[in-house]
């Protein structure tokens, strides 16, 4: 089944430049239905605002007040949100971080700096080819 590129994607990062980069990269991959949040708390509000109608969450780890790993745990602990694929995109590049994220239910993990091919391949591994 083909991936619906019209799906709503939530990008979460406290660096507005990174949000802009991600939005542009997603646009190049034909994903233009993109919502933004600047930390885990704002992301949760956004997810609930749309009743969990998101096809993917792409989140940074290091944010305040709610970090990416906390957001992931909240999402996985919420019956209305827990099915949403969640990709962590972060500069936290220690194996203990990857293990903690995986244990919290992350769908995939991208370490910064990353390139467009990496983003595409990780999205495809989660959503299917597009």
């Amino acid at each position: 089944m083909a991936v619906d590129t019209n799906m709503r994607v939530l990008i979460v990062d406290d660096y507005k430049t990174m949000l802009r980069i991600m939005r542009n990269l997603l646009k190049q991959l034909s994903f233009e239905n993109v919502e933004e949040a600047i930390d885990g708390t704002a992301a949760l509000e956004k997810l609930r605002e749309f009743d969990g109608d998101f096809g993917l969450v792409i989140s940074d780890w290091n944010m305040e007040p709610m970090t990416g790993i906390q957001l992931l745990r909240e999402v996985r602990g919420d019956d209305g949100l827990k099915q949403i694929p969640f990709i962590m995109v972060t500069a936290e590049s220690k194996s203990e971080n990857v293990i903690a994220a995986k244990e919290a239910g992350v769908s995939n993990y991208i370490v910064k700096p990353f390139n467009a091919e990496t983003l595409k391949s990780k999205m495809e591994s989660v959503l299917g080819e597009f």
Binding site: T67, I69, E92, S95, A100, I110, V111, F114
Partner: peptide, 23 residues
């Protein structure tokens, strides 16, 4: 967390090349 680290300890930021693991 399940690996014996608390969330604060996991916030290390970007690592040097010799410490970071690759994609």
């Amino acid at each position: 967390t399940g690996v014996g680290h608390n969330d604060d300890e996991l916030l290390q930021g970007p690592q040097n090349k010799d410490q970071a693991i690759k994609q």
